[in-house]
Design a protein around this nucleic acid. Structure first.
Lengths: 297, 297
DNA sequence: ACCTGAACACCGTTCAAGT
DNA sequence: ACCTGAACACCGTTCAAGT
């Protein structure tokens, strides 16, 4: 668990989304105008401005003009509240660029109908990265919780649908999903922390780099590592650090898209003797999806 | 910061590795037999067995048979201690399969000399994944700290060297490094948490999946997501959950290796008119390396 | 139905004091 | 040089009590 909520023993429900207390409040009769939505909203705002480490039930209560204990009327534990905040943030994703949820699973499974899935993948990955950068605190939460709120599931569902439409054999789709979204998760995590630290220190990204590289230089015996970095910095021309990060992200995505295409093609030519569809789904070895939505989220 | 150490204001050094107090202790004159190495060692053990959330200076002190305040003789803050523990764990990596650190940068830059870099990449990525699974607590730390301890830098240096030997144009190498190791970071993070949660709940991975999927089923409106998972589970045959994860990891790596090969080939044919080396390094747009070792680590 | 005060069992860290 | 006790300013959560 991310918070220290485990200091006390408790029935240990797996997630807020499973049979916890009903979302109390709704009718406007509340003395303090509190309800789950409002609490969640302010939680997100506080986490954005002050970070996960400084967030506390007492701090939140103060912000809402109420005692810390009042919050426990609406929420069982701090962890529950963090789960709510996490899913709320996933709601910011604009999934409109993606196909609507269809009832039939067989619509998009053709090998290479248009370049659509590439753009969809780039859009979704970009949105996810944006979330991780705008709200750095979600990163540890994603790793920790089951992540089965409605908005998170919508995201995972969209990702699944896109990967299904790549033409990649079914038994590799789980791996492709993991490759792309775990990469974005890792990158977004680092970028999020990086930008937060810059903001907190009142530095630009450029200034931070100089500082960090100077720091690394003080650790003896690793001149080679530094040399490589210097080379890259020197050669980057007029690009800002921001642009470098952006471009690296896109190149990495291109690399994975190329990988998906190549492996799809390899598979197609491997059974070109049969005229079976490249994604015949039954096989002795199917790909794993971790079940953990963190896998895709 | 990962710990609550920021509750007090402090000069805010960037890392333990930079001009902190010298690693006290060494001579055997200590009344309690304490020194940095021993403290770090026990810290790692406690983090492994009880997790980051339960780790505290007081708990550690108790384990060492000493008051919490004694620790501050050897270490400035809890964060410093966590940085030490993090780097210690990177020391477990066996980097022997990789080429020795060479002084000349031009040795391995040929386009495609042997299949070596593929195996090296798989070995290093596998080792990193193993670390994240064996010590789930390092994941948030990697995202948080500068990560410039000697063992971490050794790891980053090795990763750089491998990517340099792929034949990929220099301006894409940063992205490739990010793609592979951020992916492993993301995957390892989720797998680490997953296995820890299973262990804590006394469940097998299989049991946990059933539980988690049943849980997801309770959230109305996402039958499609579940259907896909069911399909995958049904088709996986005799494979254990463990084996599924393992194979997904390897397929994802294959996918990225295929991506690197494809992009290298594309680049080579793009300037096949000139006989320039594919990694001529100067360009208007060089790839970024975040400077943050978290980028590769 | 909703909110509070006091209390419990914790934190990281400082500081003056001991040996 | 190394370690301690007491203290400060915090935590999440419980529980009995208020309105």
């Amino acid at each position: 668990m991310v918070s220290d909520a485990d200091r006390t023993k408790r029935p240990a429900r797996m997630s807020v989304w499973l049979g916890g207390k009903a979302p109390k409040g709704r009718k406007a009769g509340q003395p303090s105008g509190l309800d789950r939505d409002r609490i969640t909203e302010v939680t997100v705002r506080l986490l954005d401005t002050e970070g996960l480490a400084k967030f506390s039930m007492r701090r939140l209560a103060a912000e809402l003009g109420v005692t810390a204990m009042s919050l426990y009327w609406y929420v069982d534990t701090k962890d529950d509240l963090l789960e709510l905040a996490l899913d709320a943030v996933f709601g910011e994703l604009d999934l409109s660029k993606e196909a609507e949820r269809g009832d039939d699973t067989d619509t998009d499974t053709d090998t290479d109908t248009g370049a659509d899935w590439r753009d969809e993948l780039r859009a979704l990955a970009g949105g996810y990265r944006g979330l991780l950068i705008a709200h750095p605190w979600i990163s540890p939460l994603i790793g920790t919780y089951l992540n089965i709120g409605p908005h998170s599931l919508e995201f995972v569902g969209t990702a699944q649908r896109i990967v299904r439409s790549t033409g990649l054999p079914t038994r590799w789709q789980g791996a492709a999903l993991g490759a792309v979204f775990q990469f974005v998760y890792g990158l977004g995590t680092v970028e999020g922390h990086l930008k937060k630290r810059c903001a907190d220190a009142g530095m630009t990204l450029e200034e931070y780099y100089v500082e960090a590289m100077g720091a690394t230089r003080e650790v003896a015996g690793f001149e080679q590592v530094l040399e490589d970095l210097d080379e890259i910095m020197a050669a980057r021309g007029s690009e800002t650090a921001e642009e470098m990060l952006e471009r690296d992200f896109e190149v990495a995505l291109d690399l994975m898209i190329a990988g998906i295409e190549t492996m799809t093609a390899r598979h197609a030519e491997a059974d070109s003797d049969a005229d079976a569809e490249p994604d015949e789904s039954a096989g002795t070895d199917e790909p794993a999806v971790t079940g953990e939505s963190g896998e895709a989220a």
